[in-house]
Simulated assay, not measured.
Amino acid sequence: MGYAFTAEDVRFLQSPDGAAALLEVDGCALNASTRLADIGRARRRFGSNAAVLAETVMLRRKAAAKLPGTEGWFFTDDALQQSTPGAVAAHRAQRLRGRNVHDVTCSIGAELNAAARTAATVIGSDIDPVRLLMARHNVPAATVLRADALVPCTRDTVVLADPARRSGGRRTYDPAALEPPLPDLLDAYAGRELAVKCAPGLDFDRLGWDGEIEVVSLDGGVREACLWSPGLSGAGVTRRASVLASNGSVWTVTDAEADEIPERPPGRWIVDPDGAVVRAGLVRHYAARHGLWQLDPRIAYLTGDSVPEGARGFRILDRVKYSEKSLRQELTRRDCGVVEILVRGVDVDPAALRPRLKLRGSRSLSVVITRIGRAGVAFICESPPV
């Protein structure tokens, strides 16, 4: 759960004495082997403030990769865990460029900070007084006020929201179990321009959303979905996949694009589309753009004679009807000792299968296990370069 910050803690951290103490504690390693001793020394120097100082230093270190440029920020552990990665927040902020934006769940200010760089004006609000103090410190360019997210307090703004899972609860995929509940949030701002961050695993069909659902990945991992109201969506777009990388590259595919693809036998390569493309239901649209087709109409693996730039491609060496025995024999024949196993459409656990194959060779290969029609198939492939 992390340290329970109070308003008094934040005011101390903002004071000259607090800033000097943070600088001194930041000189400590605070790693697993030294933490107790480091905190003990901090307690002798700073008394009851030692815990908040140590927690703030450790949270800033955790935030360095996720939220670059926030070296002097204040965080809580929950707020940092639930905050949007900087690259994803910056991507969303680009779509809000020139708008007046009200972040109604601003927390410690991660989304607010990104929006402040592109929006005409930015306002942040939250119901938690401690996080609001942190947001005022972290994003001085924004107007920050205390308000319930379900009680509108601005007009003519794009409402930005990030409903969280309930404090202390496990991750939920029920829109009504978020905080604030997503259906209540949508009702409160009916008719307003909205951008609402959600978990990508939510059941969006239950919402009856008539705008755009964007699924975003960063460096190969699916991070979130965002609901965009119709006025903020692209023309004719109801689904979008946005693929981001930490080096700044971005590409997107939408359901406004063509999705006609041929039905053919497997080509030279198997292509594993980015998870955002799969979650957004845009596999056929992505395939059509790149001249690919599906191994099976119900499976998200694609195939073709070339690999799109940036995609994972596996060059097919052979295919066998799937069984553990036939797969083991073929991999042994090919002197395989290390195997990467990818699975879709069949009930196979790669972690359980790998040791049962008892491979002893010197070669590294990949295996794609899937279904074509009703038959389980294993494709023996050359591993993609690292």
Rank of each mutant, 00 (worst) to 15 (best):
K66Q: 11
P230Q: 10
A32D: 10
L59Y: 09
R356M: 07
R284W: 00
G337A: 01
T332N: 06
E330C: 09
A195S: 14
D77N: 12
G211R: 08
T70I: 06
P175E: 00
E260P: 00
R298H: 13
G337M: 03
V348I: 11
C198Q: 04
T252R: 14
G304H: 08
E214S: 08
V104K: 03
R312I: 13
S383M: 12
V144E: 06
V10L: 11
D187F: 11
A37W: 03
L194F: 05
E340A: 11
V130G: 11
R284T: 06
R92C: 10
L244H: 09
G98A: 07
N49Y: 13
G231S: 12
R99W: 13
C226M: 15
S33M: 06
L357C: 07
V101S: 07
M134W: 10
V283P: 01
C106K: 13
C153G: 09
K358L: 07
S364L: 08
R289W: 04
V216D: 03
T172G: 11
T172W: 11
V57M: 01
Y3S: 10
A114D: 08
R223I: 14
H137I: 09
A21T: 01
R284G: 00
M58F: 06
E330S: 12
E340H: 08
A90N: 12
A79Q: 12
P85I: 08
V104W: 07
D156P: 09
P16S: 05
G69T: 07
H137F: 09
P68N: 11
R239P: 03
Q14C: 15
N31M: 00
F74M: 14
D296P: 03
C336I: 06
P180Y: 07
P262H: 07
A188Y: 04
D156A: 13
T332R: 14
G98L: 05
P384Y: 09
S323D: 01
E71V: 12
R11C: 09
A7D: 13
A287L: 00
I299C: 03
E260A: 14
L23N: 14
Q329E: 15
A287H: 00
D156N: 15
I369D: 01
R61E: 05
I261F: 02
P129F: 01
R117W: 03
V367Q: 03
R289P: 03
V104I: 13
Q81S: 12
N100L: 15
L67M: 11
D203M: 06
Q329G: 11
R360D: 12
R45D: 09
A375K: 12
A89V: 10
P262D: 03
T118N: 10
D349H: 09
R344N: 03
S48H: 14
M58N: 10
